[in-house]
């Protein structure tokens, strides 16, 4: 027994080294699979406060650019209001039969929450964005995040006032996408090389793809609103092994300068889930 204690005393440094190394490695490898760990919630509350201070300084310098982007978006939204458009010809009257389309029955599917970005990175292999909105403001994991000009990512973990977003620039990010012209369902991933380019794979060779085609989110997704721009095809190459294309896609949004984003909530998600469960059971 005495020898055991002597042994422990002699090698105490080495044993504590092995122990701490084990703790950190287990944190590292379990975190990638289950993103919502206690660690994530705890650390984002602490580092979020410091990030917020630094961000308020950084934001000052990009004010004019952000202002211009917001004005552009305002102009776009205002021009899409129906009352803002005029009928081209007054010789006939456009009548809408209110009996056929009951305006009360249209339902809002996607609700947008505005959020401010307080920390961001683009050149790591796993890039996360931290937002100053959390579960107290109605954010939940798995919601989509959309920027002013395109898709940004998905919420992966939420604390009471902060939330962490896995950006498209993440080695484990995977988004089902479609070409805007209507065909070519594929998968958008990132190879970790260039923060300005994503990869679109699994698009069958039967579809014709040209440089400049817009890639948007697919209408079949239950978390992303359909038709949000992801990027523009800028290089087409063919995968020799399979019957699909390998497309390089330039991102629609400049990940370096994201300041304001919208978190998107699917209001019909619960109903969709219930239906799915029901059909699986039967």
């Amino acid at each position: 027994m005495r020898n055991v204690f002597l042994f422990l005393k002699r090698y105490s440094v080495f044993i504590s080294f092995l122990f701490l190394q084990g703790v950190s490695l287990s944190m590292l490898f379990s975190y990638n699979r289950f993103h919502q760990t206690v660690y994530g919630m705890f650390s984002s509350e602490i580092s979020g406060k410091i990030n917020q201070r630094v961000n308020s300084v950084e934001e000052f310098f990009s004010l004019s650019k952000q202002n211009e982007m917001l004005r552009n978006q305002n102009a776009l939204l205002m021009s899409s209001i129906p009352s803002g458009s005029v009928l081209p010809d007054s010789s006939f009257k456009l009548v809408r039969d209110s009996l056929l389309t009951d305006s009360l029955k249209t339902r809002l599917q996607f609700q947008y929450f505005p959020a401010k970005v307080i920390s961001n990175s683009v050149f790591l292999q796993q890039n996360y964005i931290m937002l100053h909105r959390g579960s107290n403001q109605g954010i939940q994991p798995n919601m989509a995040v959309v920027g002013l000009t395109g898709l940004v990512g998905t919420v992966v973990s939420v604390s009471s006032n902060m939330s962490m977003v896995m950006s498209l620039l993440h080695r484990q990010s995977k988004v089902i996408a479609v070409l805007k012209k209507g065909s070519g369902l594929g998968e958008v991933t990132w190879d970790g090389k260039d923060p300005g380019h994503l990869q679109l794979s699994k698009v069958p060779k039967t579809v014709t793809v040209k440089v400049g085609d817009t890639v948007v989110t697919s209408p079949y997704s239950d978390k992303f609103p359909p038709g949000v721009a992801i990027g523009y095809v800028d290089n087409v190459s063919q995968d020799q092994e399979t019957n699909t294309y390998l497309l390089s896609v330039k991102t629609a949004i400049d990940f370096n300068s994201i300041q304001h984003v919208f978190v998107v909530k699917n209001l019909l998600l619960e109903e969709m889930e219930q239906l799915k469960h029901k059909s699986i059971k039967e």
């Binding site: 287990s26 590292l28 975190y31 650390s43 580092s47």
Partner: peptide, 27 residues
Amino acid sequence: LFTSFFLGVFVDMFYKTPGLHAAASLL
């Protein structure tokens, strides 16, 4: 040993990679 572990954890909080920098700085 303990200083290096906490230094690593401190950096990890900002890089959102729990354990990665902690393991390296511990070594």
